[in-house]
Design a protein around this nucleic acid. Structure first.
Lengths: 114, 114
DNA sequence: AAGATGTTTCGATATTTCTAGAATTCTCGA
DNA sequence: TCGAGAATTCTAGAAATATCGAAACATCTT
């Protein structure tokens, strides 16, 4: 992952509404949520939300698909994971293991690489 | 960590120069680097670098201390770790363990500790 | 086909961010 | 104390971002 890609994803998340949207989509899982539902839930005017969703999509953090009249947005977990990995490797390397403390997810699937 | 704090730190890192600065400071370890050294290394005009360092400091991501004529900046590993943890918990929860794959830094490893 | 619903695009404005030259502050050595 | 070195602050203009009403677009229902 290049620095510019990381900056793009960080910029996309560096706004209260967009971070809230992304968190909500993460909570909503792979099915995602309709734009209208997001707007109502977070009390964001539809055009404004559309603008923010476009930014998240442009950064590759969310995907969209039409479902009837609605458009469902869902978090791209791979992209989010890549960003976290980038930050962990580039902005924590050597110094901040103690603070990370990632217990909420099981480590059962840990890779066994040489 | 509140959402607004996360946004503050994300915003601080969401700029090519600032992300480069922070990476450099992480690589430089706890001793840090003088502002002039950073400016020279990354080819950033001093006033511009000062502006970016102030943003990073304001977000709590870097600390500074005077050393003679120089001012040394160093990464705040705790703050960085908190941000990574926040993203991991709020933006990955349940979906992106595979992508994270954090092998580059071994946990509970305390190498080259003098 | 017409109307209703969900979403985006357009347009105009307000706000924030970025950049770097000039001037200023602080510190050290002579 | 003076001059030089290191960094910041001041300043102002350019660029990017944010907001949302109005209008347009796509889709469903009747």
């Amino acid at each position: 992952m290049r620095l510019d890609d990381a900056v793009g994803r960080l910029s996309a998340l560096a706004h209260p509404s967009r971070l809230a949207v992304f968190r909500l989509l993460v909570q909503s899982g792979p099915e995602g949520l309709a734009a209208g539902a997001i707007a109502e839930r977070l009390e964001i005017a539809p055009p404004t939300l559309s603008f923010h969703l476009a930014q998240l999509a442009s950064a590759g953090l969310v995907a969209s698909r039409r479902d009837g009249r609605s458009i469902l947005y869902s978090a791209d977990f791979t992209a989010a994971g890549e960003l976290v990995a980038y930050l962990y490797e580039n902005c924590c390397a050597g110094g901040c293991e103690p603070a990370v403390h990632l217990p909420p997810v099981r480590r059962a699937d840990r890779r066994t690489e040489p």
